[in-house]
Design a protein around this nucleic acid. Structure first.
Length: 273
DNA sequence: CCAGTATCCTGCAGGC
DNA sequence: TGCCTGCAGGATACTG
């Protein structure tokens, strides 16, 4: 669900809202998330610690605390972090509740349970199985130099390659489709059969679509919301995602949808070549 | 190593 | 109205 811009939006909101607040208590119920969520483990380390910084790596959120340690978080498809008054009713599928010293609670809600929460001791980050193999950040201004050769080395469809977090970290189904449309490149084209200048163009479009979405607070389609309850406004600027059957805004041709790398991809058969 | 598929889970829209 | 099916913004284990 949330891709890089949505996670970045959450990160910024949390950095602002959490400040250096102390965690007073930990609640919730252990459950099977992507990694097992063991509430007792978090209850043993979090109380007494203060939030110190909120970082993002790809679609992962890293909340640093003091004394040092990091709460690793991934929102999966349906995960949300919310800040609520203690008195606010608990939503169904609330897995973790952190009671804060200002009277509010940081809550993790995730109906589909594809997300994850984990505690990382200082130094454990480099060895974390999810973080260790992540590709570079797509907001890097140098993306035009390192992404094209990586794509060129593979024969899978470009759409599938953009979703591979080991090649570039943070692109998901929405922005992959949008970047391909902006670059005028067919999503089913093989990496190795695409000319380098076109791959460079694609890399730059990946960066710019993500940057624009970050500036708008992300895309809200179904159940994504920032902790404050605000919604991103990028949805109105989507050119292909979810628009199959509708006319291409560039050439008027009917947009179609195909499954690539197991994910539905909308694209324009006329202006994407 | 690479590419493709199956799988985890719930909610919801659409068809009947 | 209810039931059923398929699909959803993700990551990864597995197969060939």
């Amino acid at each position: 669900m949330p891709e890089l811009p949505e996670v970045e939006t959450v990160r910024r909101a949390l950095a602002l809202e959490l400040g250096e607040l102390r965690v007073l208590a930990v609640g919730g119920r252990s459950t099977a998330l992507r990694r097992p969520l063991v509430v007792e483990r978090l209850a043993a380390v979090l109380p007494g610690r203060r939030f110190a910084a909120a970082r993002r790596r790809g679609k992962f959120l890293l909340l640093d605390l003091e004394p040092p340690g990091t709460l690793l978080c991934h929102l999966g498809m349906s995960g949300r972090l919310t800040l609520d008054a203690v008195s606010a009713p608990l939503l169904p599928h609330t897995h973790l509740v952190l009671r804060l010293e200002d009277g509010r609670e940081l809550r993790f809600v995730d109906p589909r349970r594809f997300g994850l929460l984990d505690w990382l001791e200082p130094g454990a980050e480099a060895a974390d199985p999810s973080l260790a193999r992540l590709g570079p950040e797509p907001l890097d201004p140098a993306i035009g130099r390192w992404l094209p050769p990586r794509l060129k080395a593979r024969r899978a469809p470009l759409k599938a390659l953009l979703l591979d977090q080991h090649l570039v970290a943070g692109v998901g189904n929405i922005y992959a489709a949008e970047a391909l449309w902006r670059a005028g490149v067919r999503p089913d084209r093989e990496g190795r059969r695409t000319a380098l200048p076109r791959l460079e163009r694609l890399a730059l479009e990946v960066r710019s679509v993500l940057e624009e979405a970050v500036a708008e607070g992300g895309t809200t389609i179904r159940d994504y919301a920032a902790p404050s309850g605000n919604f991103g406004s990028f949805a109105v600027r989507l050119e292909v995602y979810g628009r199959q059957g509708e006319p291409c805004r560039r050439c008027g041709a009917e947009l179609r949808a195909d499954v690539l790398g197991g994910r539905t991809t909308a694209w324009c058969p006329h202006c994407q070549r």
